[in-house]
Write a protein that binds this DNA or RNA. Structure first.
Lengths: 121, 121
DNA sequence: CGAGGGTGATTACATGTGTAATCGACAGGG
DNA sequence: CCCTGTCGATTACACATGTAATCACCCTCG
């Protein structure tokens, strides 16, 4: 699967949320703080098409865009990449790191414990 | 803290493992499969210096390089970034994702449970 | 003393990315 | 039927990144 750049990812998020959309619709839904012009969004869409992570179908004179890959798949790949690179593929090392950095609230801990317990059955 | 590119990260790994080192030493320790020339490693070192994530001290006619940032800090930042972007900052969502993808062995589960239990005390 | 090898610095060049402007085609309003 | 706005496509340009080659300098060996 092609790598998706940070900015491009923002466009994918929009389409994973709702699809199909026109270029203008996507632009309208991209987070405000990006401050992107419509032209910029169109460039992103073209590049994502070229990467094969989007598809488009004609709708009269314009296109409707929709994701060609599933969000879970992409997220899984990126998470795996990070865990491999930074934690030698060891998930417990990641969790230990998060714990050491206070990224785990008591609620998080409880939730994760429940998840793990469910896994063992 | 400056972003560190994928290739540059490989150089940082070497120096986090052992420092200080000369450019030639770093090149010798970079993973074989990168297939980098010494020149390439030197470019990386210059860029990392420019980014302020390395320091160097003179050793006669050459430099000894050493990390200016701690590995844990960088790793924490990158992990946080990923969790924020892909899981809305929710660590349990990440763990659920890993579970769904069979990235968790029974040993991992046991280890994580032990970690979490220790946290609660 | 002169040549060769090692050093960092400078330069090179292709590709990716952020961020658009512009262009040619076409559709719909007047 | 023509103007204007809209669409995708093409082009632009600066900076980041991967991957080096080359240069100027200096130390050491012969």
């Amino acid at each position: 699967m092609e790598r998706i750049a940070e900015g491009e990812y923002a466009v994918m998020e929009v389409l994973w949320e709702e699809a199909p959309l026109t270029a203008a619709d996507v632009a309208a839904r991209v987070p405000e703080d990006r401050g992107w012009s419509l032209a910029t969004v169109k460039t992103m869409l073209s590049r994502l098409l070229a990467k094969g992570v989007l598809t488009h179908e004609e709708d009269g004179r314009r296109y409707l865009y929709r994701p060609a890959i599933r969000r879970e798949d992409y997220v899984a790949e990126e998470s795996g990449r990070l865990i491999d690179r930074m934690f030698g593929g060891r998930v417990p090392a990641l969790v230990a790191q998060l714990a050491a950095r206070d990224r785990l609230t008591p609620a998080d801990i409880a939730e994760i414990e429940k998840l793990l317990k469910a896994l063992k059955s």
